[in-house]
Design a protein around this nucleic acid. Structure first.
Length: 641
RNA sequence: GCCACCGUAGCUCAGCCGGAAGAGCAGCUGACUUGUAAUCAGCAGGUCGGGAGUUCGAAUCUCCCCGGUGGCUCCA
């Protein structure tokens, strides 16, 4: 006998081998509507599964995340069923499902969007028809026989253990599919108005480019129509915040058809970049960095020595100069190394921190470039630190603190990954293990949680990656800290130790923003164009109500400018309402309204971008509050008067 | 690089089963002098992404190229 509880109610002893369905009936009677599956510990099971051990069972409803995974799994099968109806020669390959998404890959001719909407209609019909899928448990041999004509399914089945119960056959009428479960008992549990087919794309079998090309249809699903509508609204919100949209509207940068992947920064965008870089210079100077600048074009010999010519050739842009081959730098490290080699270093110089805002170019595939997020030319806020092995832990701690302090200023939280030794690596295993454990030890000492990404380190060393979380909950990789024992080796870097002997330094490569262009893109979306005051290209606009206040308005504007505040004056013939509307659209944080009343009383009225108004304010107290905000890099526009 | 979709005025878009290129906003000119998210009128603005083809005639149909969007893969 096994002891079973369901939803925290003890059912006492049950016979092993009972199905979950039977057990649930003991608890809830015949009406199990709304129960999609169950969870035992963290394992999700179907109602048809059998119980062999004592268990605490939790039922899963459509509102539970795990409940939705069951729905998505079924929707993938239903999609396959729909495809089999209108594209009979499509071969089902593999499916995947998550909490709110599902997809199925097929070997077939390209699928158009028209077909997609047709498929969606058929799926709805199938769901409304609400047949109960039948599950058939077969041996591996029988599965292989059943799917003998489907090479993809055969490959999947061949990969199964001999006695695996992981895969079953999912029947819906005369349609049969391989299912790894757990699955829904009844399609009636799915709201046919709460899913949507989203996109079709070309993928390769098992993600390997050498394999055949498949068509992937993917969709999203939610517990109810209401949730789907909410999701659609969120997508619209994302669209509104799209940095490409806002970048165009606010004239921050431009993208030009004949130079794809090469963003042009416009005056407004450059203002923001300059403020970011000024901030970056301040913090780095305080941390003992020395800024350098290395050429964009460097000789082939250097790239041969660094290993880039072999390891990174595909992404490098090659050119020639005076019959010698050169490459446009895709990374800044070799340049920094040449600077290190320029003079002999003593152990007293270390850690030696060279920082560089380096413009790099990479030949990214045309299909991946996108806005500022993925480009072919970008600035990195790079630094290369040369140090002794004994200094690694302290230096890492410093770099982490610098990164943490920087992200804090923008209101970003972040998560951290440690990537370990990859299959292809250089150096010796012992050094790798030691340095990897140093990375983890430093994080632990700081009480920082981290995920471990096995075998994802750079070929020359392990690394810590920082993924910042924006206000919409999306993560972006920005900062990275990489330990490198390889480049110093390749370039025979040395320093003189206290005993007069030559030693090899270690290198740390690190960025905080990552790519300045990408970081700008993230900031645009994070703030929706409403940047913190210290970053705003235009901080204040003075709006006279009529022309007769122009004189006083100019006096006020001059005063603000003299205090270093970026101030414009709207001397157009527009109505005050229109002027306000324009300023809002241009995301100007402060609108200083000047009418006859303000002029007579020698004061100003202020309206913020967040629609707060401050009337009859003295110019001085406004300035004081704004300047303080800029100095402290405060977020938000609320004035403290 | 691969698949689908898209490309018309500076911006947002209409026109597209072939038959004289349109609107709103922005711009310019003028009038209005306005109190917290669009004052009114006029003017100007386009090799319809590029090239080839079909046709008496192509923004519209076909093919090739370029670029963009969403995915795949890759990454800062």
């Amino acid at each position: 006998m096994v002891r079973i509880s369901v939803d925290e109610e003890d059912l006492g002893d049950c016979k092993p081998g009972m199905t979950i369905l039977e057990i649930l009936r003991k608890r809830y009677g015949g009406d199990l509507k709304g129960i999609l599956g169950v969870k035992i510990s963290s394992r999700v099971l179907s109602l048809r599964d059998e119980i062999t051990d004592s268990s605490e069972i939790t039922t899963l409803k459509i509102t539970d995340p795990e409940g939705m995974t069951l729905v998505c799994d079924s929707l993938a099968h239903v999609l396959a069923r729909a495809v089999s109806r209108i594209i009979p020669d499509a071969t089902m390959a593999s499916l995947s499902s998550g909490q709110n998404e599902f997809s199925y890959d097929f070997k077939t001719n390209p699928i158009t969007e028209e077909t997609m909407s047709q498929l969606q209609k058929i799926m709805i019909e199938i769901l409304k028809d609400a047949q109960t899928p039948q599950i058939e448990r077969l041996s591996k041999t029988d599965l292989l026989y059943m799917f003998r004509e489907n090479a993809f399914k055969k490959t999947i089945i061949e990969g199964l253990d001999e006695n695996s119960e992981d895969h079953v056959v999912w029947h819906l009428g005369d349609f049969a599919d391989l299912c790894h479960g757990p699955h829904l008992l009844n399609l009636r549990e799915i709201d046919s108005d709460a899913f949507e087919l989203k996109s079709v794309s070309a993928v390769h079998w098992r993600g390997d480019r050498r394999n055949v090309q498949l068509q992937r249809i993917s969709g999203v699903a939610f517990p109810s129509r209401k949730d789907l509508v909410l999701h659609q609204k969120e997508c619209k919100e994302l669209e509104k915040r799209d940095h490409r949209r806002i970048g165009k509207d606010l004239r921050l940068f431009m993208l030009e058809e004949d130079n794809p992947g090469m963003p042009f920064l416009l005056p407004n965008g450059m203002t923001i970049v300059n403020r970011l870089v000024e901030f970056w210079r301040d913090t780095h100077r305080n941390e003992g960095y020395q800024e350098i600048s290395t050429p964009i074009l460097l000789t082939k010999d250097l790239w041969l020595q660094s290993g880039h010519w072999h390891k990174y050739a595909e992404n490098m842009l090659i050119t020639a100069l005076d019959e010698r081959e050169y490459a446009i730098k895709p990374m800044n490290c070799p340049g920094a190394i040449l600077v290190y080699q320029n003079i002999i270093h003593s152990y007293r110089d270390l850690p030696l921190r060279y920082s560089e805002i380096g413009l790099v170019h990479r030949h990214e595939l045309s299909g991946v470039i996108s806005g500022l997020f993925r480009v072919r030319a970008f600035r990195q806020d790079d630094a290369h630190i040369f140090l002794m092995e004994s200094q690694i832990a302290d230096e890492l701690d410093k770099v982490i603190r610098l990164i943490d302090n920087t992200y804090r200023v923008f209101g970003f939280s972040y998560v951290v990954d440690v990537s370990t030794r990859p299959e292809q690596f250089i150096g010796n295993v012992e050094t790798w293990e030691r340095s990897t454990s140093i990375l983890m030890e430093v994080l632990r000492k700081r009480n920082m949680a981290f995920r471990i990404k096995e075998k994802e380190g750079a070929f020359y060393g392990p690394k810590i990656d920082f993924h910042i979380r924006d206000c919409l909950g999306r993560y972006w990789q920005c900062g990275t800290i990489q330990l490198d024992f390889s480049m110093p080796e390749r370039f025979n870097l040395e320093y003189l130790s206290s005993d007069g002997g030559s030693r090899r330094p270690v290198m740390i490569h690190r960025v905080v923003f990552g790519s300045i262009e990408r970081f700008l893109g993230i900031l645009i979306e994070h703030y929706g164009g409403k940047f913190p005051l210290w970053l705003c290209p235009i901080q204040i606009r003075v709006l006279p109500v009529t022309d007769s206040q122009l004189g006083y308005a100019r006096t006020v504007a001059d005063k603000l400018r003299n205090l270093g505040l970026v101030t414009e004056i709207d001397d157009s013939q527009n109505s005050i309402s229109k002027k306000i509307r324009m300023a809002h659209k241009e995301r100007i944080p402060y609108m200083v309204i000047i009418g006859s009343q303000e002029e007579n009383e020698s004061c100003i009225s202020v309206r913020t971008l967040d629609n707060e108004t401050y009337n009859q304010l003295s110019t001085d107290s406004f300035c004081e509050s704004v300047i303080c905000k800029i100095k402290t890099k405060t977020l938000g526009y609320q004035l403290v008067i």
